[in-house]
């Protein structure tokens, strides 16, 4: 018969304060420490770091030039101005940047599951999903995040209200990106290696988030506000930042909450099916 000998086991003089009050504060400290280490790891290769960040900014500027040329010839596109398109880019690249800088494993989840690389995180006493997501930082995405800020400063409303609105838009966009990718990655628990499929789904979200929602009608529009919720990111400039459209805001918040809950639920359900593996692994 199994014997729960908890009292006897507790006699061991541990040095952890995990059973003391202040759990949330310690969780935040752990999160901050993980981000700090990711950044330190990225900066180990100084030249490569600066080059990667810089090239991503240049890459995004190319798109800005393209849209600039477009709006020079056609000043309004289905009610969208150059400023709206710029802010859409800021919301999309900022959200993507938040995901890839602070939760960099979101897009790699399918691969980590399929190749059995969750073992290290499962052996540690921290929420597994959080631990996995924050354990990697994409250096190039720092460029995307900086780009979003530059765009906001150049084209946005830099008043206190404008800053609050833009920050909220970035957070909502970031959460949509993170948990959409988590859900796409979790398919691996049930379908085997869905690395390619998960990447395609993420790519669809990213691509559609950088086109004005106004150009999509009917079924296409329905898809963008349900299955691939890019519409909630790309509509930010006109339905939230420029004018506050409450039904849109509720919809965006509802979708964010749904994706969060769905992502967390799917991940922990999926963990029961996790089969590990014998692939060698190092944390980078």
């Amino acid at each position: 018969m199994l014997m729960a000998d908890d009292k006897l086991h507790k006699g061991h003089a541990g040095i952890s304060e995990h059973d003391q009050p202040g759990k949330l504060k310690r969780l935040l400290r752990f999160t901050a420490a993980s981000w700090r280490l990711n950044l330190a790891g990225a900066m180990e290769f100084r030249f490569s770091f600066l080059l990667t960040v810089g090239s991503m900014i240049v890459n995004n500027i190319v798109w800005i030039i393209f849209w600039g040329m477009y709006f020079k010839r056609f000043p309004v596109l289905n009610g969208w101005t150059l400023q709206d398109v710029m802010m859409m880019w800021a919301a999309a690249s900022g959200g993507f940047g938040i995901m890839s800088v602070f939760f960099g494993n979101a897009t790699r989840l399918a691969n980590l599951i399929a190749t059995g690389q969750l073992d290290v995180y499962l052996a540690q006493p921290k929420p597994v999903l959080l631990n996995v997501l924050i354990s990697r930082m994409s250096v190039s995405a720092i460029g995307d995040l900086l780009f979003a800020i530059f765009i906001f400063v150049g084209f946005g409303d830099v008043s206190p209200v404008g800053i609050v609105k833009f920050t909220a838009a970035l957070l909502i966009s970031g959460m949509i990106f993170i948990f959409f990718c988590v859900i796409a990655g979790c398919l691996s628990f049930w379908l085997g290696n869905t690395d390619g499929l998960s990447f395609q789904l993420f790519n669809a979200l990213l691509v559609f988030a950088t086109y004005p929602t106004a150009i999509f009608k009917g079924f296409g529009r329905l898809v963008l506000f349900t299955v691939i919720p890019a519409g909630f990111i790309s509509s930010m400039p006109v339905s939230f930042i420029r004018e506050l459209d409450l039904p849109f805001l509720y919809g965006a918040l509802g979708m964010t909450a749904l994706l969060c809950a769905g992502g967390i639920l799917l991940f922990y359900r999926g963990l029961r099916r996790y089969t590990s593996g014998n692939m060698m692994g190092l944390r980078r």
């Binding site: 061991h12 952890s16 790891g41 692994g281 190092l282 944390r283």
Partner: peptide, 16 residues
């Protein structure tokens, strides 16, 4: 919190 684990083929050290 109360156990330790070492997987010879899976490192928990930060590589860089």
């Amino acid at each position: 919190y109360r156990i330790g684990s070492v997987f010879g083929q899976k490192s928990q050290l930060w590589y860089h």
